[in-house]
Design a protein around this nucleic acid. Structure first.
Lengths: 331, 331
DNA sequence: CTGAAAGCGCTTACAG
DNA sequence: CTGAAAGCGCTTACAG
């Protein structure tokens, strides 16, 4: 089965030019007589010619493949971010190559896969991004950027929602409901984003001179919210407002509070989430939350990739995109 | 920045053999003296050599890249299936290259991207898979297989959950609750899976001599369930059991039934879903549903890819994996 | 079991 | 503006 049957040679012969010229005709910025280019493009179309990307990448030592390192896809927010990212990359002519980290897939494996395919730039979007992951990429000569997290050591570029600002928004909104006992449920302990969100939450409260009564650990899951509910509602004084690290946790909290403790929301306590995943809008939650600006984050990321691919030098710029409050029925 | 600094040539020189031998040492089935191979692999390790996959693919006219065509990632089930698929493919040495169909990304674009990268096999997993999509792939010389759908015209191989059997399971279970008025909410009208599910539902009912009172259109979304609730519960006789094309739709139905019509589940009516997405287990739904055998589907798919890549001839075998009932509180 | 040689399909200085 | 030539890093008959 001869798939790549038609090559630049065929087109060249058909038009009566050299392979070099065909090659140039396909590269936007190279000089070719307008008429010639048009003829070549027409012939290519007719013959069904498409440049072999493998050969292109081999000779130019750089492919259009962009590596994406991500964690598991079980958080709906991650799925959405990832979907938006790959779409946007593709729309801009890049080929996303995703490495999903997991028990049998380390960053080393991912880097090795990327190197084998001459990937130029790598986007790190897994929940946990350590300095050693960045180092592993850099060492292999890969340009790296972080999406939805910030590299505080400035070794990589970053595009991130302004999570501290978003966290403050959440805190301020909760305060406007004048609660007397506030609880916070944190995100994953190893996650940079969890720290940033918490910092925002605390800063917002502090600004109003308020200290949370509870700051409970969590890990961004539904389960974490359910567990926290048991701590908060089983006995003793209860919170009348709970700030959650993300929507999933808020949902777990709400569910357990209602089904197990018979509480009503927002009557018995107010809740606010973070992310604005599609389920936040569902009737059973109707969750007030902080929306991450997914589209703008993706735009900026694609921009960044454009620049990294155009001039292959590591940049370490940081881009912050503000979050906004989405008010619903739980506050 | 010289990324691909160390080549087979370097390793060859280092060990004192030819490039050919280095190449052979990296290919499992080629004959090389054991000692030689060992030396080469050791040197490669030391020098940090990795074969350039681009060059390999170029010369052997086949890359390890597997194309995946999918729709939007907004249905949690699709996200999970896709995550499991890419993981498994990677664990088996393939590189998944995903093309997300959408307003600005047609199957033609996807095929063209795959061809440029000498992709050998393509997996079609988008919700809507038409014969013309299969034809487009075949025409470009791509081997194609369908995941979670069946090609009834036998032009492609298929791995699919046995949706009819699953649908029957749902129907039988609902019948065991002896309802008197059953409603069915369908999936997306253009989707093969929706037809299969419905066929199963109807067959199960028919076997017991039961005809559904309502068969409402849907599209697999939460919204579809909410809309159906208005039809079913606003006035006139109400169903006491609703069979939904998927979990998302069941959730929309439940939410609206409760919040807008004050109904209780399963007291006022029973509901059953399909898929068993993680949210089905949540307290607020506790949804009885039919679980798709994701892991086994993925195993079979990876097997199939192995065979397609090993011997590049289009097969058209069909693999069915049975579904099973997951009983929870809504029935 | 191993090496020399040809060649995959392309790009890019170098001349003209 | 265009062509001839070299070369990206690899695999694979072909000889030995």
């Amino acid at each position: 089965m001869d798939r790549q049957s038609v090559t630049a040679e065929d087109v060249a012969r058909h038009v009566g030019v050299s392979r070099s010229t065909v090659s140039r005709a396909f590269s936007a910025d190279r000089l070719v007589k307008k008429v010639t280019r048009k003829k070549i493009l027409k012939a290519a179309e007719e013959l069904g010619y498409q440049p072999n990307a493998l050969a292109q990448a081999l000779i130019s030592r750089r492919s259009q493949i962009v590596g994406i390192v991500m964690g598991e896809l079980n958080n709906p927010f991650h799925a959405i971010l990832h979907g938006a990212l790959t779409s946007s990359l593709q729309a801009n002519g890049y080929i996303p190559m995703t490495a999903q980290l997991g028990p049998d897939k380390s960053i080393t494996d991912a880097v090795s896969m990327f190197r084998q395919y001459q990937v130029g730039a790598v986007l790190l979007t897994s929940m946990v991004v350590t300095q050693s992951m960045i180092a592993a990429c850099r060492k292999a000569g890969l340009l790296v950027a972080l999406l939805n997290r910030i590299d505080e050591e400035d070794l990589a570029a970053s595009v991130c929602a302004d999570l501290e600002q978003g966290g403050m928004l959440a805190a301020e909104h909760i305060i406007s409901r004048s609660p007397s006992r506030i609880a916070i449920i944190e995100g994953h302990e190893k996650s940079w984003t969890a720290k940033a969100r918490l910092a925002g939450h605390l800063a917002g409260l502090q600004r109003a001179g308020i200290t949370p009564v509870w700051v409970l650990p969590g890990d961004y899951t539904y389960k974490a919210g359910a567990v926290a509910a048991d701590v908060l509602f089983s006995d003793g004084p209860r919170p009348d407002a709970v700030i959650c690290a993300n929507d999933l946790t808020a949902m777990g909290l709400m569910d357990t509070a209602r089904s197990k403790y018979g509480l009503r929301i927002p009557n018995d306590f107010a809740v606010i989430g973070f992310d604005d995943i599609p389920m936040a809008e569902w009737d059973c939650f109707d969750l007030t939350t902080v929306r991450l600006p997914v589209n703008r984050m993706i735009e900026r990321t694609t921009d960044l990739v454009d620049r990294m691919m155009a001039e292959p030098t590591q940049v370490s710029e940081k881009t912050w995109v503000p979050c906004r409050l989405v008010m619903r029925g739980t506050t």
